Simulated assay, not measured.
Amino acid sequence: MDELINWILEEGRTSDDLGAIFKGISERLVAQGIPLFRTNLGMPTIEPTAALLRFEWSRDKGLASDALSPEASYGPEFQRSPIRYLLERNLLRERFNLEDPEVVRRFALFQDLRALGATEYALRFVTFSQGRTALRGAALSMATDRPGGFTEDEVEAVGRILPALSLVAYRIGLSRVAVETLGAYLGPQTGAHVMQGKIRRGDSQVISAALLLADLRGFTALVDANPGTEVVGWLNQHLECIGDAVTERGGEVLKFLGDGLLAVFPSDRIGTEQACRDAVRAAVDAGGRNTALNARRAAEGGPALDLSIALHFGDVIYGNIGTARRLDFTVVGPAVNEVSRMEVLGKALGVELLLSESIAHRCGHPVLSLGTHKLRGTTGMREMFALEL
């Protein structure tokens, strides 16, 4: 097994593809005479929409993998699983003879495996850390269809590779968590900048981008009149309408601002006009989704929240600001201030979507001038526009 252990460590040093490594381990164990029929590796993850990563290799079908939601990870199937059985009894390993009908009847998984010809199922936990993160370990299972099951020597041989597998799985798991967590809290593009080492205060660059600032009207009154948990649920639904519209058109939500958000559509790779078009389409789509959400909620007797959006294009400073040990990766500059003032003006004018001159004539959509207006905190007058319906 020394050669396989060295392979695991070398692959784990250079690759982030845990599925490919697990497939390679399973195939190499078979090549060394371990009669594997199916293997499974499950490990927790820390992501907004996933709680468990699952890799399954079978002799006939190869590798399959998926990321399970918290509900699927710890739902009824988990509650009636061999993994739950071991956890409740503080056991790290167990072997189950699937040629015994009494054993097969204990779990639905065993019945499925037995129907496929399996004769033994072995399960073992691999521990990672002592509680610093939720990545505390993984569950490794293997099944065989050879009559009589595994031998003790075969089980022990597989056990020899577990320290190497746990080290690699933990390293790859932490890397994935870092990427996914930063993407969730900062946005995927900004998170990638941080992962590349741009984490020092003052690390910044000037970029040209279309800016989208969205705000929900009437949210303060809603908070005052309803339980906090219900309000948070409603708010998340509205923010999802806006955020999904932004990301589907290449924009990135930089930050949530209580009952609104700030998003950017950088022009460096797609050009100024395309960035402006994408921002306008995202804004229109967000408005449509929000209207549909309000209609569904009204049908249920719930409250509605109207949406106010301002769009502007300009140069912004994109980078780290804050204290030495508490930073925010965001955009600042006159263009950010202006789009903020525009959103307030849009509410005063009763316009759901307000465009600055810098974006109105680049968005590829007919626009209607709303005249010139003074933006608080700025010099001069600014011509404002709305989309012509």
Score class of each variant (00 low, 15 high):
E3Y: 07
E3L: 11
W7R: 12
G19Y: 03
A20G: 10
A20R: 12
E27M: 07
L29F: 06
V30F: 08
G33S: 12
I34L: 14
T39L: 06
T45R: 11
A51E: 09
R54M: 12
S58E: 12
R59M: 10
L63W: 01
D66A: 11
L68D: 04
P76H: 12
E77V: 15
S81G: 09
S81V: 05
Y85W: 15
E88R: 15
L98W: 00
P101R: 06
R106S: 13
L113Q: 07
Y121I: 08
A122D: 08
A122N: 09
V126G: 15
G131I: 05
R132N: 04
G137W: 05
G137K: 06
A138R: 00
L140C: 04
S141G: 13
R146L: 10
P147G: 03
G148I: 04
G148S: 06
G148M: 07
E152A: 15
D153Y: 04
D153R: 13
P163W: 04
A169V: 07
I172D: 03
L174Q: 12
V179F: 08
G183Y: 02
G183C: 04
G187V: 01
P188V: 12
G191S: 02
A192T: 12
H193T: 09
V194E: 02
K198D: 08
R201C: 08
R201E: 12
S208G: 15
A209P: 06
L216R: 01
A221C: 07
V223M: 15
D224T: 15
A225E: 15
T229F: 14
V232K: 08
V232T: 12
G233I: 10
N236L: 08
H238C: 13
E240R: 14
V246D: 02
E248C: 06
R249G: 04
R249I: 06
G250Q: 09
E252Y: 00
K255Q: 12
L257C: 11
G258I: 03
V264G: 00
I270N: 10
G271M: 10
Q274E: 15
Q274N: 13
A275P: 03
G288N: 08
R289A: 06
A292D: 10
A298G: 08
E300F: 06
D306M: 06
L307N: 01
L311I: 05
D315P: 03
I317H: 02
D328M: 08
V332L: 13
G333L: 08
N337L: 11
V339E: 02
S340I: 03
G346E: 01
G346I: 03
L349R: 03
G350T: 06
V351H: 00
L355H: 05
S356P: 04
I359F: 01
R362C: 14
R362N: 14
L368H: 11
G371W: 08
E383Y: 08
